[in-house]
Design a protein around this nucleic acid. Sequence first.
DNA 1: TCATGGTACTCAAGAATCTGACTATTCCTA
DNA 2: TAGGAATAGTCAGATTCTTGAGTACCATGA
Lengths: 189, 189
Amino acid sequence: MALRHAVLAALLDEELSGYQLAKSFDLGVANFWHALPQQLYAELAKLEADGLVAGREVVQESRPNKRLFKVTDEGLAELERFAAASAKPSMLRDDLAVKVQSSDLVDTAPVIAQLRERATFARAKIELFESLLLKFRKGLGEEEFLRGGERIGPYLTCLGGLVFEQGYLEWCERIAGILEARKSGGRHE
Amino acid sequence: MALRHAVLAALLDEELSGYQLAKSFDLGVANFWHALPQQLYAELAKLEADGLVAGREVVQESRPNKRLFKVTDEGLAELERFAAASAKPSMLRDDLAVKVQSSDLVDTAPVIAQLRERATFARAKIELFESLLLKFRKGLGEEEFLRGGERIGPYLTCLGGLVFEQGYLEWCERIAGILEARKSGGRHE
DNA sequence: TCATGGTACTCAAGAATCTGACTATTCCTA
DNA sequence: TAGGAATAGTCAGATTCTTGAGTACCATGA
C-alpha cells in the first residue's frame, strides 16, 4: 500500500498522464521508488476509484488522446496521514552487489564490466540530477532557495538521488579497480 | 528469481541455518538485499529441492535442533551463471523520501522526527559496518588486505553499505535541518 | 513461578509485483 | 515507402512478497 503514496507525491507538482508518470518513474522519482508502467496505470485506476486523484480526458490532434491526473483534496489528506505514520525502513535490492559479494568464487571479468557499465550510468544520472537541481531553483542560490522557495520537496529528493549516485559511482570505480588489480597482479604475493 | 542468488551469496562464507540467515539479512546482507524470514525459509527449501544447497540436521542440547545449509557445486555454478548475466538496475523503495518529496504540502514535524530517527539508525549501522570491516581484515591494513586477502567479497559489499549509510546519514541531517529552519524562521521573507 | 525473550521454524491467505504480449496512431528516417 | 521509435495505453497469468498467526523449547530475571 505504498506505491499509492509515491504516485500521489509524484503528481503533486503537475498533472500527468499514466505515460508521463511512467517516464518520471524511470528518471526523477526513480531515485527513491521503482515501479513498472503497468503498475502505475493500475494504481492510477485504483486511486481514481478511491477519489484520491481526478482524471480528465485530453483530446490531442497529432497523437493518441490521454488522461491527465491530479491529486484531490482527499488525496492530499491521505498523503498527510502517510507522512505522519511511521516509515518502513527503506528497501534496497541490488543484483550487482550480490555479484560483488560472490566475487572471489566466481569469474570477475563480467562483474568488472558491469561495474564499469553501472558507473557510466551513474555519471549520466549525476549530470541529469545536477541540471534538474539548477532548473528547480531557477537562478537562485541554493541557500536562498532552500530558505525561501515555495516548493522544495522535489529539490530535496533530487539532492538525495545525487548523493546516492555519487556514492555508488565512487564505489563502482573503486571496486572495479580492486578486482582488476587482483586479476592481473598475482594474488597470493 | 534473484532472492535465490542473494541467499547463495550469503551462504558462501559459512554454513547457516534459516534462522541465522534471517539474522544476517537483517544486518549484513541487508545492505544490498531485503527479505523477510518466511521468504528465506521458503527459498532455502526450494534451493535444496533444486540441489543448489545441501542441508544437514544439527542436534542441539539446550535449544531446538536446526538445519545448516551450504552451497553445492551446482549452486556455485548457478551463481557463476548469474554473475555473468547482465544485472538488473538496482531497485530502491524509500517511504521517507516519498514524505520528503511531499514536504511542502504536508505537516513537516513528523517527517523531521523520522529523519532524525533514521539518522540515529544510520549511525548505528555505520558503527556496525566499521567493526565488521575491521573483523574481516583481521589486523591487516586495508590496501594489503584488498590486494592479497583470500576472500574480499563481503568486505567490498560492506564497504558499499558503509558509503550508502554515510550518504544517507548526511542527507537526513541536512534535510532535517532545512525543514526545521523553514518551520521556525518565517518562510516568505 | 511466571513472564519475557531468544532460538528455530511452519503455514495460509491475500496483496503486490513482474513477465510478456497486444492495440492503435503518428512522426521521422533510410 | 517501408520500418522503426515515440505516444498512450490494456490485459492476463504467474511469481513473489507481505501479513499475521502459530508451535515448541530453553534460559533468564523479577
